[in-house]
């Protein structure tokens, strides 16, 4: 496939949240506040004027401290959040690997969840039928196919989520801290699968607190700070700058994962 084809274009995206001083979710409180004119929100801009463009096959690492807006940006690209202003162009099928293990139906068995979850991700029934064994095998859950998910450990759930989400060959892969799922054996397996997709020219958006991992996987990086992009460029340069900025010393390979 031809390179230098735009895969994702984020144009001036801003995302505003209304933070209530107190949580308001009952009619009575709302009415009282509304009538007495005390209904005001604290605005919070999780993202301000974020723009960038990725070509097909680019792997973008998103660096930033907690609360910098990394996950908000990924969710906006995944389509879960609608940006308050701005526009996001996406070329192709997206596999969002966000909060793996969440979104399952707890009373359902693993088998039923594969179908339900697959349907939510937009797979067809035939596709799931054909991939079913592969998904269960990858998640290493052969013995638990007909056990309700509520009895699973969180590691097992995450593995299943990862296996379902990555059973397609997506054009765009969104990874939010997901390569730290499961034991070290599964970690290696999942990283191998992500690399396989990268070899297929998938565009990757990657969030991780392990800078080593970002350097290993990505070719580009941005730094987010309080919702603004403060730097964008080649991964090693940006990562070096980021470490310097936050006073992080170069760490040995596995220290961050422990």
């Amino acid at each position: 496939m031809a390179k230098n084809k735009t895969s994702i274009r984020v144009e001036n995206v801003s995302m505003k949240f209304n933070l209530n001083a107190e949580k308001l979710d009952s009619v009575k409180e709302f009415m009282i506040k509304f009538i007495t004119g005390k209904l005001h929100y604290n605005e919070f801009w999780a993202l301000t004027d974020v723009s960038f463009e990725l070509e097909k096959g680019d792997r973008l690492g998103i660096l930033g401290l907690n609360g910098a807006g990394k996950s908000t940006l990924l969710k906006a690209i995944a389509g879960v959040y609608k940006p308050t202003t701005g526009h996001i162009y996406k070329g192709g099928k997206i596999a969002p690997l966000l909060e793996l293990g969440a979104g399952f139906e707890m009373q359902y068995t693993a088998r039923e969840n594969v179908y339900l979850y697959g349907a939510i991700l937009g797979y067809t029934k035939e596709f799931i039928d054909s991939k079913f064994d592969e998904i269960i095998e990858f998640a290493e859950l052969e013995k638990f196919v007909d056990v309700p998910i509520k009895n699973f450990s969180s590691g097992m759930r995450s593995r299943l989520g990862f296996a379902i989400c990555t059973s397609v060959c997506p054009d765009i892969l969104i990874l939010d801290e997901v390569l730290s799922v499961g034991d070290s054996k599964f970690k290696m397996k999942s990283e191998a699968r992500v690399r396989e997709m990268m070899a297929n020219d998938a565009t990757v958006l990657f969030v991780s607190h392990s800078i080593e991992q970002v350097k290993r996987i990505c070719n580009k990086a941005i730094i987010l700070d309080h919702g603004k992009v403060i730097e964008m460029g080649e991964v090693n340069e940006v990562a070096a700058h980021y470490m310097e900025m936050n006073g992080i010393v170069e760490e040995p390979e596995d220290a961050g994962n422990k």
Binding site: A78, G79, E99, A102, G103, L121, G122
Partner: peptide, 9 residues
């Protein structure tokens, strides 16, 4: 909610 937070449908 947990699905809505993850995938757009």
């Amino acid at each position: 909610a947990s699905m809505i937070k993850k995938v757009y449908v």
